[in-house]
Design a protein around this nucleic acid. Structure first.
Lengths: 217, 217
DNA sequence: TTCATAATTTAGATAAGTCTAAATTTTTTA
DNA sequence: TAAAAAATTTAGACTTATCTAAATTATGAA
């Protein structure tokens, strides 16, 4: 088994790898709220365990073994988030920190039975795909609202930012998963976006929000 | 918040306090599979935090603050055990180690909602009472079979030993919670006990088993 | 292409929790 | 009640994961 710290490093490297090839020491330090020197120490340890590919000054990538562990942690995180929202009736902005703890519960049989208990959900409360017990899942094909053009429409299906402040804002604007929207106008000056909801209500969102709100077409 | 190690010490002291006043360093070391010197170090730390009453060479007891933390961990342990058995369909001999991890999940709201989700169960799968969200519970009034006399009868309602080997043995003998039994004979020589079940089957159990199997009269 | 700057690593320290071995205190027993 | 045995504590060391400060390597701008 791996320590809690090791698991968090692997998870962080996995997430950072998605939109970059090799991940840098500083990126990891920023994402884990720690110092670059601490990261270097841990990278050596993970490299010794053959969980990452690491050469000094060159950044890192996960080995297949490391990726398997990372995906498994993400599976557990997302299944627990789903449990917290669907069974215990938490709001989608309340579950992240709890799931950060629960994702480290080790039993594989526990998580597989939880999966079965909830009838094999495909997405967590933020629209992220849930890997199955073999670590397989469909990479999401979602697009940020900021990449769309006027008159495009689609369904809100995910978020990039999982912070409570962002999720609470969306909740207040009723921009929650499953809502259908269309693009009414893109403001030239600040790239803010005006949307229309199914019930014809217009909502004006900033460029940051448009960057972090994902749509299935 | 307290560290995992601190929580485990408090829990251990709590359990050991039940059938003794002050708890000794060696008792704690044995129960936590560690060395007496390690225990001494931790006792100093817990005393500094005012969670235990400690004077050198005299053993320890929990302060009210320490007891509150211990009872809360036990509440979490028992609720998770109940969840694992009732919702995820684990057997009663499979859940202890998983619950040992889960009892350290920190959120109080999570555990209160879990309690509500399961409709406020009163006993865990081994018959132990589950403290409510204020830490209150009824100390169990159960008696070991070994304290009964011939012709006494009652319902199996708890176990003292939670090891899988013991629980699996009971399962095989169909000596599970809720079963009604009566004492047919107590063998003078080795204090073994012959029971009769509701369906008139006779079961011969050793003194050790009789000591660890609890009855509600 | 060289030099300043940014990124990364190394060196040395710290804190938590554990260990072994030695010292001390308590308890038992003769 | 004094010596032996048992229990407990202290001293010093180790591991993991972290930190700061200094040294090293890479990068990018002139």
């Amino acid at each position: 088994m791996n320590t809690l710290a090791e698991e968090n490093y692997l998870k962080s490297i996995y997430h950072l790898s998605i939109d970059a090839g090799n991940v840098s020491t500083n990126q990891i330090a920023a994402s884990l709220n720690t110092k670059a020197s601490s990261v270097t120490d841990m990278l050596k340890k993970l490299a010794d365990k053959a969980l990452i590919n690491y050469t000094r000054y060159q950044g890192v990538s996960l080995t297949p073994a490391g990726e398997k562990i990372a995906v498994n942690i993400i599976r557990k995180h997302r299944l627990w988030e789903y449990f917290l929202v669907e069974k215990l009736k938490f709001k989608w902005d309340q579950v992240h920190d709890m799931a950060e703890e629960m994702e480290h519960i080790s039993s594989a049989e526990l998580i597989d039975r939880l999966d079965e208990f909830m009838d094999y959900p495909q997405h967590d409360p933020h629209g992220e795909p849930i890997p199955d017990c073999n670590g397989r899942f469909n990479a999401s094909e979602l697009k940020a609202i900021s990449t769309l053009s006027v008159n495009n429409c689609g369904t809100i299906a995910g978020v990039r930012d999982h912070s409570s402040s962002f999720l609470q804002y969306l909740e207040k604007q009723q921009l929650t998963l499953g809502k259908k929207i269309s693009i009414t106008e893109i403001v030239e000056f600040d790239h803010s976006v005006i949307l229309q909801t199914e019930n014809k209500k217009e909502i004006h969102i900033s460029r940051e929000v448009a960057n972090n709100l994902l749509i299935a077409l």
